[in-house]
Nucleic acid binder design. Structure first.
Lengths: 64, 64
DNA sequence: TCGCTATGTGAAGTATACATTACATTTTGT
DNA sequence: ACAAAATGTAATGTATACTTCACATAGCGA
């Protein structure tokens, strides 16, 4: 599972910390997902898509 | 988190068992998700969307 | 250079997605 | 009505998403 979170963050010019607060998760969680350490829950993915005003598929890419 | 899995299943006229095999999860997992006992992982949601040829948002509805 | 802000990371614990087994109930076809 | 298929569900165990605390490194402005 790949993601373009860093790019979406850059578009809005916000920090991992800021995004974390918006998503109501920790900064470490955002960092871990961004770096591919694990995948987000579907709830978090939905929250992110809503925040960035796009679809889950615009942020996350499921391969195979 | 609501979902219209049962409807999508009905469209293809397949059983929970059949969908489970396609998704490579157990029948109980499909049943639990369909009945709202818990949410799918994002990977499973992606697999379902791919199988039903729709978007995750077409199957799952995130509220609140 | 100094200090601050952002990011990366490790360890240990909690919550939840999913498996397995097993059985009960409902639905469907004949 | 009867059997078989489909669905519901409980108990117990495992994997992983996420938290908290703590500290280390990177980058950037003054």
């Amino acid at each position: 599972m790949k993601n373009t979170l860093k790019v979406w963050r850059a578009k809005k010019d916000i920090t991992q910390e800021h995004l974390a607060r918006e998503m109501e998760v920790t900064r470490q969680t955002i960092n871990a997902i961004e770096r591919g350490k694990y995948d987000p829950s579907i709830k978090l993915a939905f929250k992110m898509a809503r925040f960035f005003e796009c679809s889950i598929e615009d942020i996350f890419l499921y391969e195979e």
